[in-house]
Design a binder for these strands. Structure first.
Lengths: 244, 244
DNA sequence: CGTTCGATTGAGCTTTCTCAAGCACAGTGG
DNA sequence: CCACTGTGCTTGAGAAAGCTCAATCGAACG
């Protein structure tokens, strides 16, 4: 399964330095000689995707490891009849393509203009072998992801639409609070309403309706379609927990 | 949070050999000197739980590592208002309590009479340190769990009740086919309908209704409440994929 | 300025849930 | 050995949450 996005990868200017790469997860730097990791990353080449472009498809061979430098990707799976589940969104600093499998278990698509840097998977594997604490770190990261996955399953299996969106906004707000380009309670929603719906197990109409109800209740302000301000985090947290 | 089940643990006959322990996941044995692991496990002590007894609660400190020898446990989380999500069921041979966290992220409760053997967590950590391939193996296991978690999220977010139950039965049938105590298409359901519902994001009534509809359509036979025979695996697989 | 595509809003419908009653079976005591 | 009882399972009827289909709105872009 050769994708357009993959051909796109080959078209890169060779040896583009990957200055923008940064490691989101501080713990990775903690266990490694940070200089090692940075120098390793500087070996990467960049790839640019415009909104809607697919980086790889579910089932494609895993031949590269990526880190996202700017933009946002969605990771998703499709059922035979077209129903979609978005497994998660990739933010700058996140890794992509680190896997024990030989095939990607997701498709990855840019939801806005994005830039990544990549290395051959073999080189990454070699890097891990040369830096044994990295193995433990990978395990730690997988365990962490597993914990979030279980919270998401609780959300999908047992929470109401209102609780799902409240939870979603709170998590985004919490993540944004840790980055530089956030002013207080401003939250970016680069993805479409459909993407949010597929992530939360709802329809785009329900997402729209619930966000509108939050707006009517003065919990949030819709600055634009892709940017909202959280006005009442406290009440939103109450909604996320119990839906009351 | 000290649980009755924990007091129960201390009441064990000391130095009970743990002959029944077996490693479900062959890959673990593959990377280790199998004798090492077996001898390690023989250091364990056994604990018996009757149906409904709790082994540990969410938030309890992780002080022990378990392997289940007989029976079935459920791992679950509760919301403040009592809504329950069952994260998974533990079968003989499965590990329990292996974690990078200091606190359990689930509660664990026996859904039928069960027997486990356990070791102090510190001893297990030491064992892992002495057997470095084990680290990689733990990572592999976490990655594998993560993959199933994502399939479960697709199920919870996008599949119908019929598809969920069909998927559930097929997975159980596939697992049973790998063990000795299964005759063809017989599937054990040791857990209650409520447990299945909390696992699939449904209500016990819906579980009951869908199983009844499968029976009416001659897809399964309800030998007893906790044992069903799969009559038409093929059609069940079609249902699981597309609900048609 | 018109077009297009996603977001929003509305109306009716479907699936699943809730509440409630009846059923089956295992364990208990007469 | 059999009625009694409790618990969990099944089934039914009505309600509700969220979905589907459809119309409108609005911002971005040529």
């Amino acid at each position: 399964m050769l994708t357009p996005a993959k051909r796109h990868l080959e078209d890169l200017p060779a040896d583009h330095p990957c200055a923008g790469c940064k490691v989101r997860d501080k713990a990775v730097c903690g266990v490694l000689d940070c200089a090692d990791l940075t120098s390793f990353k500087s070996l990467g080449r960049t790839v640019r995707l415009s909104s809607g472009q697919v980086l790889f498809h579910e089932g494609d061979p895993v031949s590269r490891v990526f880190t996202l430098t700017t933009g946002t990707l969605k990771l998703y799976n499709l059922l035979a009849d077209g129903r979609c589940h978005v497994a998660g969104f990739v933010s700058p600093g996140d890794f992509l393509g680190i896997s024990m499998d030989d095939e990607h278990v997701f498709s990855a698509e840019a939801v806005e203009a994005s830039q990544l840097c990549w290395f051959p998977r073999t080189r990454f594997d070699g890097f891990v072998e040369d830096h044994s604490p990295m193995e433990r770190e990978l395990y730690r990261m997988a365990a962490h992801e597993l914990a979030s996955a279980h919270q998401q399953m609780m959300l999908l299996g047992r929470k109401t639409a209102i609780e799902r969106l409240a939870t979603f906004l709170i998590v985004l707000a919490g993540r944004a609070a840790g980055t530089s380009d956030s002013v207080g309670t401003m939250v970016q929603l680069p993805m479409s309403r459909s993407d949010i719906a597929d992530y939360l197990g709802l329809t785009k109409e329900t997402v729209s309706r619930v966000l509108s109800s939050f707006r009517r209740d003065h919990l949030i302000r819709l600055c634009s379609v892709h940017q909202i301000e959280i006005l009442e985090l406290r009440r939103l947290e109450l909604l996320a927990a119990s839906g009351a």
